[in-house]
Write a protein that binds this DNA or RNA. Structure first.
Length: 316
DNA sequence: CAAGTGCCTTTATC
DNA sequence: AGATAAAGGCACT
């Protein structure tokens, strides 16, 4: 007869003056593969299965040390201080008010790298599915509370994988990027963890040498795993946020051009990226994540009421 | 329910 | 430099 391994539920009492919201943090698109059952969130983090839930200022969890949880969820960031630096206008103020407690994570660089290579030109449910397929096929099986969860596959495992098997996880043309990147990491030509010690610009250049990593993916990896809080990824939603709320920082000609451009050119990316970094300062990444989440939810509200896009009328 | 549109883009090519 | 097309396939409407 098998006994359930003895597990201890641990508690972190949150500081009421330094907000944290678990649901916002997990659901804002910076991390994938979390599964919710009842009030508990489950996920493998490294070799461990973690479950965690929040009841106001009490964080309850199993499967990891307190220091690991504090580090992963960046509970060491002082949000009021960060807000006071990025709170430059009424838009970001509204975003902060609505998603107060959303935190950037300290994710594992390897998993973050592969996840965002997969994330290009996909929507979030599809990304979740790809990564679940990948972990089920190539990760190690683990259990908690009779739930089966898989660890994220090691570089060697993905390096050895047949590209067609990666494709059948739903990766499509991304399969060869994942395969080639895994080989470079496996052969120690590229070490994702070493970039934590590098300055932001250098780390970004090195990331962009990898197949499937352009400026947007590189900025996501910098922000979500390499602890570069000034990184400011530009995607469709941030572009919309800028068109809707930050027109006065750009020329009409530039605004007209990018509102008709269907994909971001390199020079447009650079311009929007440096605006974000200069305008919001050293915690621009926090501003980006609040604006991203805010713009997505605003769009849904607008859609429900009018059935129209918010930017379409602006430059006609 | 079918068909069209959109998706946290990058790369190759001109 | 700057523009353009192609790349799979799922989700949403």
């Amino acid at each position: 007869m098998k006994l359930e391994p003895q597990r201890k539920t641990m508690i972190i009492r949150l500081d009421r003056t330094n907000p944290f919201n678990l649901d916002f943090t997990i659901c804002c698109g910076q991390t994938f593969r979390w599964k919710k059952d009842q009030q508990w969130w489950y996920r493998t983090l490294g070799e461990n299965v973690v479950k965690i839930r929040q009841d106001r200022s009490v964080l309850e969890f199993e499967g990891a040390k307190t220091s690991f949880i504090e580090n992963y969820f960046r509970l060491d960031d002082n949000l009021p201080d960060i807000f006071s630096l990025i709170n430059k206008d009424s838009t970001i103020q509204a975003a902060i008010k609505e998603f107060n407690g959303l935190r950037i994570l300290r994710q594992e660089p390897w998993e973050c790298l592969i996840s965002f290579i997969c994330a290009t030109y996909k929507n979030i449910p599809a990304i979740e599915q790809m990564l679940n397929n990948l972990t089920e096929r190539f990760g190690e099986k683990t259990c908690m509370d009779n739930k089966v969860l898989h660890t994220f596959p090691k570089p060697a495992k993905l390096a050895k994988a047949d590209v067609n098997d990666l494709k059948s996880c739903g990766l499509g043309y991304r399969a060869k990027y994942v395969s080639e990147t895994a080989k470079l990491v496996c052969k120690k030509v590229f070490n994702p963890n070493a970039l934590i010690q590098q300055p932001s610009e250098k780390a970004k250049k090195l990331l962009m040498n990898l197949p499937g990593v352009g400026p947007k993916v590189a900025d996501c990896i910098l922000l979500f795993s390499l602890q570069k809080l000034e990184a400011f990824p530009i995607d469709l939603w941030i572009k919309r946020a800028i068109l809707n709320h930050y027109q006065n920082h750009f020329s009409n000609e530039f605004l007209r051009r990018i509102s008709t451009e269907q994909s971001l050119s390199n020079s447009t990316y650079k311009k929007l990226n440096s605006f974000g970094r200069q305008y919001f300062g050293k915690y621009a990444g926090y501003a980006q994540q609040y604006l991203y989440h805010y713009e997505r939810t605003q769009e849904q509200v607008n859609h429900a009421h009018t059935g129209t896009k918010t930017t379409a009328h602006l430059f006609e």
